[in-house]
């Protein structure tokens, strides 16, 4: 196990290098000049050329890239934001608490909605409760996040005046965005819970437990649920990992100063260091969460633990539905 983790951590290095190369190349090819954004319309050409060379933007592609990687590897220096002049790390870390809260709360919301519904609809398969929760899940995945967010603002902020429409300072501010992001997550989690529960219920040992005359409640709780939740754990982990990147669309709708908004703003401003650093750290967080999920997974399911020696990874959910995470 220890060896496996070590290998996985080691493997992150080429992946992250690859991420750096992709994002660096993409930005290099992107039209638009950060220097002109920094200096404004009436800056003269000499000033622009000077700043450009100070930032190293006049060097050839490869030299720029090598410089960039070197600084990160040798000094953990991600550069300085073109817009604010602050170190990129500081810039990202100042947004991170917000994104972390949002990711945590919305994941909790998703779990709280999805798991009970998923279990119920599996137990009472094809009953009205099953049908309703399946429809809810379907609507959940199909509703674009920004539309749902707008409707929520209209209902809860404008008409009912229950929750504020923007910002992210008090728990009251968390509710609407967390519900918005949570419902689309809930849909995927509910489906997984339901199908894996169904699968487990049909297994022999559950049937045996039933035959032995164990009360239905105990059968469900003790025998079925425990095993059924394994794939659910994966999808929850993956969702959580993805939402650590910030919820780009929802942060836009609710004016939340999280990582997603930072990334979009930085792309607009051609704030290269922040985009590069941000994507790199997001990829890192994502890889770490993936690793944690895989490890947890092994702990929960002994069958899988034994498979690790065979180097096989089982993924039930993959990146399903990520497009709608927004």
């Amino acid at each position: 196990m220890g060896r496996y983790i070590f290998k996985r951590v080691l493997y992150m290095i080429p992946v992250l290098l690859g991420v750096m190369l992709i994002i660096f190349t993409m930005l290099y090819l992107t039209p638009g000049d950060p220097v002109r954004m920094m200096l404004g319309d009436d800056a003269d050409e000499a000033a622009i050329a000077q700043l450009r060379s100070e930032l190293g933007l006049d060097e050839p592609y490869l030299a720029q890239f090598i410089n960039y990687v070197k600084k990160i590897v040798m000094k953990l220096d991600f550069g300085v934001s073109y817009v604010t002049g602050r170190p990129v790390i500081e810039e990202i870390m100042s947004r991170y608490p917000t994104t972390l809260i949002l990711a945590t709360v919305s994941t909790l919301v998703a779990i709280a909605m999805a798991i009970p519904l998923g279990i119920l609809s599996a137990i009472y398969q094809n009953s009205w409760i099953d049908n309703i929760s399946r429809i809810v899940a379907l609507v959940g995945v199909s509703m674009p996040n920004f539309w749902q967010g707008l409707l929520m603002i209209l209902l809860f902020s404008v008409n009912l005046k229950w929750f504020p429409a923007s910002g992210f300072t008090t728990p009251a501010h968390w509710i609407l965005p967390a519900l918005t992001i949570g419902t689309s997550g809930a849909a995927a989690i509910m489906r997984t819970t339901r199908s894996s529960m169904l699968e487990v219920i049909r297994q022999d040992y559950v049937r045996t437990a039933r035959a032995k005359g164990a009360p239905e409640g105990i059968v469900i709780w003790k025998h079925a649920l425990r095993n059924a939740l394994i794939p659910v754990l994966t999808i929850v982990g993956i969702r959580f990992g993805a939402s650590l990147a910030g919820s780009i669309v929802s942060e836009q709708v609710f004016s939340i100063p999280g990582l997603g908004k930072l990334m979009v703003d930085s792309i607009r401003n051609r704030n290269y260091p922040v985009i590069q650093g941000g994507v790199l750290l997001i990829a890192l967080a994502y890889s770490i969460i993936n690793l944690i999920v895989d490890i947890l997974y092994a702990f929960v399911d002994p069958r899988i633990k034994s498979q690790y020696s065979a180097k096989k990874r089982v993924k039930y959910a993959g990146k399903e539905g990520q497009g709608s995470v927004g």
Binding site: P97, L100, I101, T104, V105, T107, L108, I111, T169, T170, P171, W174, R226, L229, V232, L233, V236, L296, F299, V300
Partner: peptide, 26 residues
């Protein structure tokens, strides 16, 4: 129930952030 522990962890994190949030309000 390993996954319950995970949920508990989430809850603890959330509480922690609630504390941060109130700090800002103060």
């Amino acid at each position: 129930m390993k996954s319950m522990r995970l949920v508990a962890l989430f809850l603890a994190l959330a509480l922690l952030f609630t504390a941060c949030g109130e700090d800002m309000l103060e």
